[in-house]
């Protein structure tokens, strides 16, 4: 089992001085993910919080090779880098034993929404890449517009709550399931508060030959509107309520990695977040009920898939 002390002694691939918000969840994810391989690494990053906050020229927080081209194409961009690697190996211009890992990275906007097609194409083609989605449930880099990852009832700037609206009216898209449907070798959901689980999943993703996809819950105090010191507690609540189940699908086989001792109500998840505040108005009670129903349905289905 990995020890944090050992991980801390590894070189930082994402260094201090970046401009991410107080209490931001993104660096927590990449502190672990970028340590899950010791091989040289090349990252293609979609436009978004991580890209903007780490590369304001002439400064960069990247102590590893990093490429950005656009918003919707991190998967295609890293597929291109990986294709060139394969070509040059075949042509003998890169030594046969030179190992490089390829990582595509995007937020939920760049992955669930505008980047879904490029991601689907890249994994279907079988490139040997890892793609990590840091899902903070909205377009948080630009002030919190709704994405298809925004949960039902959350107030986002393009699905605001108001006299005639209880916030986002649609169920969140289950992207992890969509990736499972691509029949790729490895798909997993993780959360930074369970760092051992996240570390193992990232290691597995890098080790497996072929495409691997990690969907990681990403805390965003700025847009979720909670006390930023409580982020890790909130992530624990997300997995205890089964709003964000931790599971993996390896070669089609489901495994749930965290079973809450006692499944907590969705209410526990929404009550500390300002984006759900309006759900406590009487007329919006049905939304909370519906949200609970959806989470229950998804959890039951997942348990069935995992033969539990």
């Amino acid at each position: 089992m990995a020890k944090l002390k050992d991980l801390a002694s590894m070189e930082d691939r994402l260094v201090a001085g970046h401009g991410m918000c107080l209490g931001c969840g993104i660096p927590l994810i990449f502190r672990i993910v970028l340590r899950a391989t010791e091989d040289p690494l090349i990252i293609a990053n979609a436009t978004g919080c991580l890209e903007v906050c780490t590369t304001i020229f002439p400064r960069t927080s990247w102590n590893v090779t990093w490429v950005h081209s656009a918003f919707e194409n991190a998967a295609a961009t890293i597929a291109g880098v990986e294709s060139m690697y394969k070509a040059l190996k075949k042509k003998g211009r890169i030594p046969e034993d030179k190992k490089i890992k390829f990582l595509g990275v995007g937020g939920d906007g760049g992955t669930y929404d505008i980047g879904l097609q490029a991601l689907s194409g890249a994994v279907e083609r079988g490139h040997d890449i890892v793609y990590v989605c840091y899902d903070n449930n909205a377009y948080c880099n630009t002030g919190g517009q709704r994405s298809s990852a925004t949960p039902l009832g959350a107030s986002a700037t393009t699905s605001p709550e108001g006299a005639q609206s209880p916030g986002k009216l649609q169920r969140r898209k289950d992207l992890t399931k969509i990736l499972v449907a691509h029949n790729i070798p490895y798909v997993a959901q993780a959360s930074p508060n369970r760092w051992q689980d996240l570390y193992k999943k990232a290691q597995k993703a890098f080790e497996i030959e072929g495409p691997a996809f990690l969907n990681i819950l990403c805390l965003c105090p700025t847009e979720w509107k909670y006390d930023e010191s409580q982020g890790i507690r909130l992530a624990q609540t997300a997995i205890d309520t089964c709003v964000w189940p931790l599971y993996e699908v390896e070669n089609g086989k489901y495994k749930i990695n965290y079973l809450p001792k006692e499944k907590k109500p969705v209410l526990d998840w929404v009550k500390s977040q300002g984006r759900f505040r309006h759900l406590f108005k009487e007329e919006n009670a049905w939304v909370l009920e519906e949200y609970q129903k959806q989470v229950d349905e998804d959890w039951e289905e997942l348990k069935k898939l995992a033969n539990l």
């Binding site: 930082d12 260094v15 001085g17 970046h18 780490t54 590369t55 002439p58 400064r59 960069t60 590893v64």
Partner: peptide
């Protein structure tokens, strides 16, 4: 940007 990790100056 060839100056890897220079954001430590921020």
């Amino acid at each position: 940007n060839l100056d890897a990790g220079n954001s430590v100056k921020n």
